[in-house]
Amino acid sequence: MRRRNGRIAVTVVLLLLGFLGAIQWKSQSAGDALAGSSVQDLGELVANLTTRNNQLRDEISTLERQRDAVRASVDRGGTSAVQIRSDLSRIRGWSGALGVTGSGVTVSVDGPLPGDAVEELLNELRNAGAEAISIGTIRVVPGVVVTGPAGNLVVTGIPLADPLQLIAVGNPETLSGSLTRAGGPIAQFAARYPGVLITVSIADKVSVPPTDRDLAPRLGRPRI
């Protein structure tokens, strides 16, 4: 009888264990991490993911066309040099090794803004789809970070003059709208830094120079 009671107790505890284990596992999943989001935030997240997925589908279409063109060239026994040059130019422009010209915006920052606030502006431009950005004549590439307190900004060891100019190639309306929207960075900075005037000008043609940094990795190697 005592042995039977023991078995029942073990069974009940193990059942509880399994149940709690399942709950714990589920609560650690990605979905539950979204518990920190309100309905409004989730709506924004869904919109963001949808936009990004559409961009990725466009990229797939572009790459498929590129693959067909290269394959056709190879099948004809010809050279793929033209296609490679085109690919090379596009990647170098995108990465910052070559300058880029196109429609976009110029953001003028007049007054003392700290480095992290300038980084917020750059991050906002990237989020709005900027294809190339520069701080004055310095191309923004990985490793280029604006630092320093308000009035003493430095980027890659070079002091930045006031007024500061950020130049971005991209959809002008989207870039401008993202910066100037209600509750956006410019509105927030107006309250936090009342002595700073930030203006955004839309342009049909802005030019972003190439970087003078060596973008080739020195320590990392391709992973096979």
Binding site: R90, R92, G93, L98, G99, V100, T101, G102, S103, P172
Partner: peptide, 24 residues
């Protein structure tokens, strides 16, 4: 992700690549 320039074009390269036509 996407590696496209939809609103800009690549400036001519000072390297031999200069002979290339604007990127696809």
């Amino acid at each position: 992700g996407a590696v496209n320039l939809r609103h800009g074009y690549v400036d001519a390269s000072p390297l031999p690549l200069a002979s290339a036509s604007p990127a696809a």
